[in-house]
Design a binder for these strands. Structure first.
Lengths: 101, 101
DNA sequence: ATAGTATTTCGTATATTTACGAATAAATAA
DNA sequence: TTATTTATTCGTAAATATACGAAATACTAT
């Protein structure tokens, strides 16, 4: 007789929500999103002057946000202008609101 | 002449939001919150049967959620019943909605 | 007291995250 | 071409997260 439960894996929504949450899980990344949301777009250099991390560290954090699609970078050589990706920004909001309802 | 910018630290809200986000940054913790939200309360043992992690690992994840105040555990020896902490649940929702507006 | 049940803590291994400065790349300006 | 500016990647160190089984805890029932 089989009594063991089949252990569920995770739904796509759970995985996606966790991924977005991970992107928000460091205060500097929250600060980046707030800057971009207020100023609409920002140069890497301008953010580096305000945020309390080294430029190379900032690049890493920007990359985390880019990886999950919350922001995008547009190159204006030699500068890079970052903006929020509204579509995924809204998707993240929706997923969180579904979980925290 | 002083030209260096004073680098800001983080606001309490940014730190708090990042902390909640970190708590949500693993799919099993998302799954736990969904279970508790649907069933109102769950025993550790019942969750351990459904979720794809060992019991000891589940305890660790429950502890992460407890630490940031998203859930609370009530002891009914020898079992432990976990419930959502509505106050902080709503606070997390509010903080995320402020960031993702 | 002893045994049984449910959960947590401990010990530990591995992977990931975070941080920084140095080096590199990529474009423009001199 | 060479220098300048801006941003990213590399190398690396330290901290944190994740996972599991074994052992410990804490209570109940016999």
């Amino acid at each position: 007789m089989i009594t063991e439960q089949i252990k569920q894996s995770y739904t796509e929504e759970q995985l996606q929500a966790a991924q977005f949450a991970k992107a928000l899980s460091h205060p500097v990344r929250i600060a980046i999103l707030e800057l971009l949301n207020n100023e609409s777009c920002c140069l890497h250099g301008d953010m580096a002057e305000v945020l309390p991390v080294a430029k190379s560290t900032l690049s890493q954090h920007l990359n985390e946000l880019k990886k999950v699609g919350l922001i995008q970078g547009n190159i204006h050589p030699p500068q890079v202008k970052y903006c929020i990706n509204r579509k995924n920004f809204m998707l993240a909001k929706l997923l969180f609101n579904n979980i925290l309802k």
